[in-house]
Design a protein around this nucleic acid. Sequence first.
RNA 1: CGGGGUGUAGCGCAGCUGGCUAGCGCGCUUGCUUUGGGAGCAAGAGGUCGUCGGUUCGAAUCCGUCCACCCCGACCA
Length: 479
Amino acid sequence: MAEEKLPTRAENFAEWYNQLVLKAELADYAPVRGCMVVRPYGWALWENITAWLDKEFKATGHVNATFPTLIPMSFFEKEKEHVEGFSPELAVVTHGGGEELEEPLVVRPTSETIIGYMYSKWVKSWRDLPILIVQWGSVLRWELRTKLFLRTAEFYWHEGHTAHATSEEAKEEMYRILDIYERFCFEQAAVPVFKGTKSETERFAGAQITTSIEAMMWDKRALQSGTSHYFGTNFAKAFEIQYLDKSNTLQFCETTSWAISSRIIGAIIMVHSDDQGLVLPPRIAPIQVVIVPIYKNEAEKAAVMEVADRTFSELKAAGIRLKMDDREEVTPGFKYNDWEMRGVPLRIEIGPKDVEKGSVALARRDKPGREGKTFVPQTNIAATVSAMLDTIQAALLEKALAFRDANIHDPKDYEELKQVVQDGWALSYWCESKACETKVKDDTRATTRNIPFNQPEHSGTCIVCGAPAKRKVYFAKSY
RNA sequence: CGGGGUGUAGCGCAGCUGGCUAGCGCGCUUGCUUUGGGAGCAAGAGGUCGUCGGUUCGAAUCCGUCCACCCCGACCA
């Protein structure tokens, strides 16, 4: 049944991705261009992602709140760079209740403006600071080219918005959040990322500093997987967020904002999955284990189900998220393929032979076929399975790290740089001039991703123009 | 918005030098036999051929129009 298989990644990566998202039932196309429906399985994955982040934000003193979807158009005009950055992709509401509105309302593409407006009402004294609010919701940007999860018109995210007394505090906040993002990627998503600073051209509209985490996908393109911005007093001045300090002097606040969006699901897909379908890291997988019972007749069924039910109960009691696939109408072989398409990390097969031998078969999703199959005793199954899930989680990260590092190059000269960014990343000295950045983009379509925090001891010379350069930057094609 | 492509059953496609009742694969429904890597057989259900107009005795098929979507470029989480 050829139609049920995916195209291979090698023959058509873009089509492989589209079909995988649809066939794994993560998402579907909505009737409105550029919009997607996140299906229950995809949303369960998103909930596991958001639950971890929410816990971390709360542990660092943040609280959740919700601001309106509609923002007065005039708010966008208060910060010059912000409006220039976002105006091409705004959706605008002009009518309400059958009448034309006096002032058009923007469907939020991000909430700095309305939150800035509210903060100006709430902040009067140094005692009111800091404000550490996170909003969970969706935003809308009128994108020209869309792709499920990676770039949709409406997408889901959290946006953190904080206001502080000092620039030191605000910058600390920006870095603190980036660290949380980094930990999420490594520990939960098994997606290795680099933390770094964005160049001036890649910076968020209205930010003084934009930091990001950047991940390498299977096709070696880069994906910005999270961002954290320091605004200085830009938005505080635009919205008059001011407080009286301890010496009774009126001061502008220092603000930040930061986000991880549903795009991260695209990263998880493109880093781990294979030609059989989705591969999910155990810690965020909606279903960590699926049990497939195998039998030919009623007598076998009774014996097999007894072991299967007992196994299910023991794993459930151990807190493992699992599913019993007791469908009668499809064959075991179909079920194997079905759950492999959905990326379930571990499959347990239990048949008559296992009943006889007191064993069960474990099949690892990250190692397809015979290589990933082992037979283990039924006794102490919860401990065995938990350990196996940890092993899979670690193996996914290790594999992704090895792949990433093998595809980062240190070109000797500009000619070599032009070569390597066609199928990989370059980490090179850069003089930080716009001219050199633009030249690379024009010549290769690769852009600067970020200037990593981890830098070599010594300075060097710009890979493009040869001028003295203090820091290295990642050049790569990106999504 | 520039370049390229595609619209025929839920999905993937064929038919397109005009011709009578529009086909195929998958999926779906019912029944029986199956079940350790995508089961088999049988019987069914499902389509105003993207839109509007033109040519013609006759249009899925030829011509024009509009619309939608996909891919490649300029912008972005």
